[in-house]
Each structure stands twice: as C-alpha cells, then as structure tokens.
Design a protein around this nucleic acid. Structure first.
Lengths: 207, 207
DNA sequence: ATTAATTTGTGAAAAGTATAACATGGGGTG
DNA sequence: CACCCCATGTTATACTTTTCACAAATTAAT
C-alpha cells in the first residue's frame, strides 16, 4: 500500500482512542460528523483519512464502532504485542515505566536501564528493576525488543540511538532534546518544545 | 505581525535548543546550512522560518549564535517568567513537577493539585507539596498562573479545562487523551499517540 | 580593485494537506 | 414501491507548507 501522510496516521491514533471510549460507553454506531465534532476537525477530514485504507462505513448509516476500531487497530499495527525498553531511569523514564495506559495498547515494557550506580537495582514498578546500561547489549540481543524509549540526557542520546539501531531496535521514542541521526523511525517528544510553542501562541493569542 | 504557521513555531523552539547547545560549546557563528544539518531539515527551511520575523543574519557570514538565540527567545515569549500549575499528581504530573529542564526555560511550577486524599500533602519535590483540588479556584484567582498542565484522567480533563479557562488560565498542556473544548491555546501531548504512530511506521518501515 | 567563494533573504514553483461538493448507496416511512 | 433523508466515498478545489533558485551582500584572496 502507498505511503500514508504522517498527519493522517496521527489522527488515526486519535480516532482509535475516541472509538475506545465510545465502545466503553456501549455506543455501537458513529458517523464521521460525530467523530469530527468530538475532535474539533472537519467531517470530510475523517472520511478522507479513512479512505486511505478502504471503505469501512455504510452510506446513510455511519461506521460500526467495533469494526472501525478493529480496522484502525490493524492499520496502526496494534494487533501484535510490542516489546519496549526504556533507557534512562530519571523522572520521565520512571514515569513511563509506571504508566499503565501504554501497556493497555499492547506495548510491554520489558526493561529499564540507567548508568547511574545509585539507580541500578532500585525498583521502579512491580515488575521492573533498573538494570545497568552495561547489560544493554546482551539484553537486546537476547530478548529482541522492538522499541526503545530514550529518556536520557541530550549528550548521550544520539550515540545510544546509533547503537540501538545496530542492535536491531526498530523504532525509537525520543524524549531527549536532540535530533537523532539513526535511520529507523523516530518519534520526538521534547516536552520543552511544547511549552515553548504554547507560550508563543499565548503571547499572540492565536492558534 | 501576521499569524505564524505552527510548524514554524515548533521548529523555532528546536532551533533555540540547538543554539543553546552551540552557545554552551562557545561557538559564536552558525549558518543555516550547519543548523539544517544538525536538525535533518533543509537550509532553505531554516532561512524561510527566520524570515517570518526579520533578517537576523549577515550574507556571506551566517548568524551570530548569541544574537539569534536572543531573538528567538523573544519571539517565543521566553523573556518573561511563566507561572505553571500541574493538575494531577500521578506518574506524569509528578515527573513534570520534578523535571528540571522546564524551569531552565523560565517556566516556574508553582503548584500541583490532586483530588486523591492519599496524595494530598505528599511531597513531590523540594518546593512542591500536593494540594487538594478544592484549593484550586482560590489559588488561581490569587496567584494568577498563566499555564496549566493537565495530567489527569481523560474523563475529568475537559470540565477542568473549561473551569481553568474561566479562572483566567491562558494556555494548557494536555497529557490527557482527549480533545478539549476550551478556546485558549492547547498543546496536546498524548504519549500513547506517539507510540501508536511509531508502530505504524515501523510496520511499513517508511517515514 | 577585481574575482571567487560564501551565505543570506525572498519571490516563485512544487509538493503536500485540508476542505468542499456531490454522486452514490442505504434505510425508513407511508 | 416511491419518496425522502442521511452519510459515505471520492473527485475537484482551495489552501498551506516546503523547496528551489537567484539576486544581493559580505569576506578573502590575488
């Protein structure tokens, strides 16, 4: 299938979370108009986005919540379980290790690493104890996790990313404030950027 | 001045962090080409972005790191101190409260609130003790914080946002997996969306 | 002083996204 | 069944954003 624009994929993940909620509330049908209202976008956008992948609705009726959710689940690649390691047991690393929501979506956090001797061996959650970064190579080779979360200082992030790519990691979520040079997919989540962006728009009060 | 596209503002924040690092390394001059290489974008993009706000470089030479940094600082609105409250003392709320990087950029976290009685009164960082959500109204009216971070469950996020807007909060960073209906600027940081987006691109290995 | 090598700033072109518009299919009602 | 209403899927249009291309400015060298 052809390449899908990134904005579309992002919205797909948002549709998914919306459908999850509808399903919890036992709502069985939803129209593009209803979805668009919940998400403050245009209904034509919803339909266009979905049309990249096929025709999941019924004219005059709308979409089956259950069915659409399953379709998006499949499109996003959430049907298989994804194994995740976290690099860095600082504030963010630990928060993610404890964040229940991630595990609900079929992501399994299998290990957390740090280089700080005071942190190594400490318990982060019921299942996770901080491992030494020296164990990283062996762990990755043996357990083959697919995703790495970089929650380390900026200076060490890129060398680590390069190493992880070589070890076979397939994608990275990068919380460090740097641009990585590796060639696997990366999602950047620099929290300070969100603050700075917000402040700009507050200052001019437009969006 | 005219409206600035959001992608431009986001990149501005990224240039800023890059310039910070250059300045730390005592580098005084930088060209759009050098910046673009560090950030894996086009040099013309860098120049175009900056040209929204004026002409800060010298032809044949490049940009003064110090001067450009100061300009962007001003454009983003980082010259004044911004006062921030955090709603929700769960994993993410606490991690943010402890996250040093935010304070470095002139953001001051002044309070953290939760509704859970077991959390109220607990110490989150050296300066922050979890306050009861019941104190929120009075606190906001009295201290006039500008920014609120929503790190609360999805169900309560929107009512809270509406209330915060009424109380005079000017911008929101929303970690909750919902779209808010308030009309002040909001930056959404749904971490699960980043995971899902990443997985899509891993699955097709394109970006 | 002229030439060559840089690098900016910007208007024009290209690429990428979002919105609108509408034909088509489906369901309900009398 | 004939009619009307509804909501999708899709083509066409409008808009946004990125990239290109080049004139103008600066420096260094001959």
């Amino acid at each position: 299938m052809s390449r899908i624009p990134k904005p579309v994929v992002r919205r797909l993940a948002v549709y998914y979370r919306c459908l999850e909620r509808l399903q919890q509330n036992k709502i069985e049908k939803v129209s593009s108009k209803e979805l668009s209202k919940m998400l403050k976008i245009k209904d034509s956008q919803v339909r266009k986005d979905l049309s990249f992948f096929g025709a999941f609705g019924r004219r005059g009726v709308g979409y089956s919540v259950k069915e659409l959710r399953e379709k998006i689940r499949e499109i996003l690649g959430l049907n298989k379980q994804w194994s995740v390691i976290i690099l860095g047991a600082g504030n963010i690393g630990k928060a993610l290790a404890r964040y229940k929501q991630i595990e609900k979506d079929n992501f399994k956090i299998v290990a957390i690493f740090d280089s700080d001797k005071r942190k190594i061996g400490t318990q982060v959650s019921q299942e996770l104890i901080v491992k030494s970064i020296e164990e990283l190579d062996e762990f990755v080779v043996k357990n083959k996790p697919e995703i790495a979360v970089l929650a380390v200082p900026a200076e060490v992030a890129n060398p680590l990313a390069e190493k992880l790519e070589k070890l076979g990691i397939r994608g990275i979520i990068c919380f460090a404030p740097v641009t990585l040079t590796c060639s696997i997919p990366v999602e950047y989540v620099d929290i300070t950027v969100f603050f700075k962006t917000l402040v700009h728009f507050i200052s001019r009060n437009t969006q």
